[in-house]
């Protein structure tokens, strides 16, 4: 099927914006993986909570939903720290299957707690800029997309500066490079675990707010698919590599939108796995991942 350049550009821009939300999720997953060497499969549930926190504050206060990032991120950070302390720390180092299984338990708990609080209806919130489109490079783009892309870039730059320039950030990177070495240098690695999980959860919260603001529907059970896509991105980009997550997220967002456009909407969710599986067949450690062993 022939795709005209105009439409192709449009699809790329949709993909960029969709990619942004996945990048925030995938970066969080990678940060946690880097420091703790665990994979939090319940990460999508944190995104879902971020969306619902935004929803609640939005209906109560009527603030501009973008401002509500200031609510969803701190709340999710606190929750992330709690989850790390109660669930993941006790099983750290007891085998890799356990963390997958404990995430399963968390998925059940978080999804259904949310269903009790917010009921299982699909929700949507409307951004104040919903009807505004602007023209960038000759492509019509909703203003919301532009804000979401800018916000994501701002968050990623803030994270970069935190990891590179602050003592705490350096300590975290040291822990992710060599846990024992970091411990010997007097870094409290367990504190790093908590902080990395907190930041990862906070990023998921931000992704949740952006998800809600972008006009996508959400209900308590929607978290699994974005999480899996984020995971696919992490694998494409290589476990633990944050630049990989960003590139992977962009590739993924664009590929997904092209797939919907060419194969049809039924493939929206399955395409992520096709990409994932193809990547894993060629490179079992991901495109940018270091080869293990």
């Amino acid at each position: 099927m022939v795709v005209s350049p105009d439409i192709a550009l449009q699809v790329v821009i949709w993909g960029l914006y969709a990619g942004c939300i996945y990048i925030l999720l995938a970066t969080g997953l990678n940060l946690i993986f880097g420091v703790m060497k665990i994979v939090n499969f319940a990460h999508g549930e944190l995104l879902m909570l971020g969306a619902f926190v935004t929803f609640t504050f939005f209906t109560i206060s009527g603030f501009n939903p973008y401002v509500l990032l200031a609510a969803s991120v701190p709340i999710l950070i606190v929750l992330g720290v709690t989850i790390e302390r109660l669930c993941f720390r006790p099983i750290l180092g007891t085998g890799k299957l356990n963390e997958i299984f404990i995430s399963l338990g968390l998925i059940y708990i978080i999804q259904n707690a949310a269903a009790i609080i917010w009921t299982d209806e699909w929700r949507i919130i409307h951004s104040p800029y919903e009807s505004i489109t602007i023209s960038v490079f000759g492509v019509n783009m909703p203003l919301d997309y532009l804000i979401i892309i800018t916000t994501t870039i701002a968050i990623l730059i803030a994270l970069y500066l935190f990891l590179r320039k602050t003592t705490l950030g350096r300590a975290m990177r040291a822990t992710s490079q060599n846990r024992k070495g970091a411990m010997l240098m007097g870094i409290n690695v367990e504190r790093m675990d908590m902080i990395s999980f907190g930041i990862g959860a906070g990023l998921a919260g931000a992704a949740g707010t952006l998800w809600a603001v972008s006009g996508q529907v959400f209900n308590p059970y929607m978290g699994s698919l974005p999480a899996i896509k984020a995971f696919a991105i992490v694998i494409i980009g290589g476990l633990g590599s944050i630049p990989g997550a960003i590139i992977g997220g962009l590739i993924y967002g664009i590929a997904e939108n092209f797939a919907i456009f060419t194969l049809g909407g039924a493939w929206k969710d399955a395409i992520s796995f096709l990409i994932l599986i193809l990547v894993l067949i060629v490179r079992p450690t991901g495109i940018f991942g270091e080869s293990s062993e």
Partner: peptide
């Protein structure tokens, strides 16, 4: 589901 989830977490730990 919450009961099952909590049970699962407790059993694993």
């Amino acid at each position: 589901y919450i009961v099952i989830g909590i049970l699962l977490v407790l059993i694993i730990i």
